[in-house]
Design a protein around this nucleic acid. Structure first.
Lengths: 130, 130
DNA sequence: TATGGGGCTTCCAGCTACTGGAAGGTCAAC
DNA sequence: GTTGACCTTCCAGTAGCTGGAAGCCCCATA
């Protein structure tokens, strides 16, 4: 499988896949002409990466998860720990964004949004922290 | 006011303030000794930046907002538009994270997390996209 | 057999928004 | 006069790609 096909099937840009090889997340074989030759296992890993990245795991998390994935003898508790920590982080991010949203929502709601220069958004943003 | 004091009062690291000068968000005066000399207006702008960044506005958003802020004749609708777009983006991000959270939450919940190697998290992440 | 177009290769640079660190100047206190 | 905190500039690095240039390779069509 060439990079174009595996990119298509894994749902990742070819550039990204080359980058993943660069940082040694994958090690595809090479054809005689120098083209990367991806096997089913590579495709599987890339799909894994694509999904894990979409779920917001960092590259280093992915590296750890891939290692666990390839290790037949690892305990599922190791995986659960990484995923659980990540879940907590997602929860924190959601809470942060929610509070941003609330603050900004208040400001936007109070702004007339007309031709006049008076604007509570800027006033609100400019207030010295209390 | 030296950089240390203004950093303290605006709630930003000194490094970040130097960076903001670098990219021309602020233009503090200089003392005879080469030290940056911040006035109340600089402090005000930095506080504005600190809050706007905390609300997730990009630097370029901030630049636009600062320009609007300094423009006495701008219409509040301009500001409301920028803030409103940003609000939509926050909403999109929250929705994304929420769906990540749900997916990952399911995977974590289904994982025994014991010493056995069987783990639905890795299986779930490895599944070819449907 | 020539040619054209797409896909592949490497390498280098740039993006966002900082952050760390080195090397050195300045200032106030003791 | 010397310590130590604070300031300066400059260079490099972070994450995770992304864009572009220059140049092979492969296949189909004329």
């Amino acid at each position: 499988m060439n990079i174009g096909e595996v990119a298509e099937r894994a749902g990742l840009p070819a550039k990204t896949i080359r980058y993943y090889e660069d940082i040694k997340l994958i090690r595809p074989a090479r054809d005689g002409n120098g083209y990367r030759a991806f096997g089913e296992n590579d495709l599987h890993k890339l799909t894994f990466l694509s999904r894990a990245r979409a779920l917001g795991f960092t590259i280093e998390n992915c590296r750890a998860l891939l290692a666990l994935w390839e290790d037949q003898s690892r305990a599922s508790s190791d995986v659960k720990r990484i995923a659980g920590e990540h879940l907590d982080e997602i929860d924190r991010k959601i809470a942060d964004l929610q509070s941003m949203r609330d603050t900004l929502g208040d400001l936007v709601r109070d702004c007339a949004g007309d031709g006049r220069p008076d604007c509570p958004i800027l006033t609100g943003l400019g207030k010295l922290r209390s």
